[in-house]
Each structure stands twice: as structure tokens, then as C-alpha cells.
């Protein structure tokens, strides 16, 4: 137990501290903690959209309904695959680029600024650019790939439920690798060069130095950034939905259930609860195994 000051001036200071933090605490509890609990509550109800009709308690019916819905399970596995692909992809690309940018070369500052563009540019702008380059027949990237005989120029890969998920994963990697790169580069630059010098004295080659010095030094950063990216991509809605409504991840399933066609917000709430529970489970395992806290 820490001891806290009790004198009147100190008492005043403590009260001031509480006053200053109060708006934050109120906003976060009212608009994040309360809704999170309310979401679980709603998941046991048939939620009515008409304020005059009260919600109807249905017990676990929403959960049984979802767990026996093949569309839910499809979305679930697509979400898991999407998260794995995008996290691994953006981590590898980010690491590679960070190592490249850690070297001095002509035009480095310009390239560094340019690399951040995908991350900084408003989502809606990048989405339209991507939709354009993937247009069937006319899209420049489609034409290029077709000229290499890598794909049939007539296929609409964005609006096809079978491929949409792949394009969306690529888009996510393209858009988010700069974040990974920035975090890794910052750590890379703080590795003392004496470590490398020592390794060189021992006759280590480039690969050996990378494996025995760089990677261990980066381990914690890589693990934490992967965790952040994993959380964000698991919940990712806008990037996926705006590029392709057919990508079929769980957040899209929830959004469509809650707000499109005939809304079933109780069912959406129970899907969100399941998503959250899975997320907490995965994070707990990850934190114990990988971050070793």
C-alpha cells in the first residue's frame, strides 16, 4: 500500500487530480464500459426498433441461432484467416522495409515520407484508387496481370465473394505496413552499434548478426505491434466493407445483421459478444505465451 499525502494542500491537489480526470472517466464509463455491458444484456433479447414496443427476453435463443448458422461460421473462419494473413503479411513487409530504411542511401528521406502515404491517406480515397485498378477489363492492374497471364481480365475479383477476401487482405497489408515499419524502425535505430561490432569481432556474417542481434532486440516490439495489429484487424470493419461488401468477415456480418434489410440487433449483439469473448481468449493466450507477462 502506497502512502498518500494527507495535509490540506496535498488533499487539495488530490482533489484537483480527480477533478481533471473526471471528464475522461465519465466519458469512457458512459460510452465504452456501459455500452459494452449493455451489449451483453441486449444479446439475450429480441431487440425492437420501435421505442413503443419493449424488447422481448429470449434467453440464449440468439446464441443458439447464430451458432447453428453456417453463414456465421463461414464469417468466423474468414475473420480468423484475414487476421492471420494481414498480421503476418504486414509484419514481414514492415520488418523488411524497416531494415532497408535503416541504411543510408540516396533519396532516403523522400522514400521514407512516401512510404507513409498508404497509412496517412484517407481511407475512402485509397479505396477508390484500389477499386479502379482492379476494375474488370479496364483496370490497369488487371490489364497488367492479364498481360502476364496471371489472371483472366474479365473477372471482377473485388465483387466476387470467393476472391474478395484476398484483395481485401492485400489492401489491408498495403495500408498498414507503414505503421509496423515505423515502430520497428524506431527500435532498430536504438540498438547500440557495439552489439554489432562485437558480433563482427566474433566473425558473424550478415545473416548471423540478423538472427542473433537484430531479431532478439526486436522481439518485444514485434510481438507488441503484432498484438495491436491483431486486435485492430480482428475488429476491422471500414477497410473491408468499403473496398468490398462481399469479403464476409464477422464485423460485416454483425453490421449487416444489425443495420441492413430487416435489422436483428439482438442477434448482432450476441455475435459481437462472441467476437469479444474469442478476442479476449486469444489475447490472454498470446500475452502469456508470446509476451510472457
Amino acid at each position: 500500500m502506497k502512502s498518500y499525502p494527507v495535509g490540506t494542500l496535498e488533499r487539495k491537489t488530490v482533489i484537483l487530480g480527480w477533478k481533471l480526470i473526471a471528464p475522461t472517466v465519465i466519458i469512457i464509463s458512459l460510452l465504452i464500459l456501459y455500452p459494452a455491458v449493455y451489449n451483453i444484456y441486449l444479446s439475450f433479447f429480441k431487440v425492437s426498433l420501435n421505442p413503443a414496443i419493449p424488447n422481448q427476453f429470449v434467453g440464449l435463443k440468439n446464441y443458439f441461432g447464430i451458432l447453428s448458422d453456417p453463414a456465421f461460421w463461414r464469417s468466423f473462419w474468414v475473420t480468423i484467416a484475414f487476421t492471420l494473413i494481414t498480421v503476418i503479411g504486414s509484419m514481414l513487409l514492415g520488418l523488411g522495409v524497416a531494415i532497408m530504411m535503416n541504411r543510408n542511401f540516396y533519396g532516403r528521406s523522400a522514400v521514407r515520407a512516401l512510404i507513409l502515404l498508404p497509412y496517412v491517406t484517407p481511407l475512402i480515397s485509397s479505396v477508390f484508387a484500389w477499386k479502379y485498378i482492379f476494375l474488370p477489363l479496364n483496370g490497369p492492374l488487371v490489364q497488367f496481370l492479364a498481360s502476364l497471364h496471371l489472371m483472366n481480365p474479365g473477372t471482377d475479383i473485388i465483387n466476387n465473394p470467393n476472391n474478395a477476401f484476398i484483395v481485401v487482405s492485400f489492401f489491408n497489408i498495403w495500408r498498414n505496413f507503414p505503421f509496423v515499419y515505423l515502430m520497428i524502425l524506431a527500435k532498430l535505430q536504438s540498438i547500440p552499434s557495439s552489439l554489432y561490432e562485437a558480433a563482427e569481432m566474433d566473425g558473424a556474417n550478415w545473416w548471423r548478426k540478423f538472427m542473433s542481434v537484430t531479431l532478439p532486440e526486436l522481439y518485444f516490439v514485434i510481438a507488441s505491434v503484432a498484438l495491436l495489429r491483431g486486435i485492430w484487424n480482428f475488429y476491422k470493419f471500414d477497410e473491408v466493407y468499403l473496398l468490398s461488401k462481399f469479403a464476409g468477415t464477422l464485423p460485416i456480418y454483425i453490421y449487416d445483421t444489425a443495420f441492413a434489410g430487416i435489422p436483428h440487433q439482438g442477434i448482432a449483439a450476441s455475435a459481437a459478444t462472441i467476437l469479444f469473448a474469442v478476442m479476449i481468449g486469444l489475447i490472454t493466450v498470446y500475452v502469456k505465451r508470446v509476451l510472457k507477462w
Binding site: 459494452a36 451489449n39 475488429y235 444489425a258 459481437a272 469479444f276
Partner: peptide, 12 residues
């Protein structure tokens, strides 16, 4: 830990 995906229904 609470993304918009979790909060969209209750907030609405």
C-alpha cells in the same frame, strides 16, 4: 479492446 464493431449495436 472495445472496437466500433463491439460497440455499434449498444451505442445505436
Amino acid at each position: 479492446l472495445f472496437g466500433g464493431t463491439i460497440l455499434m449495436v449498444p451505442l445505436y
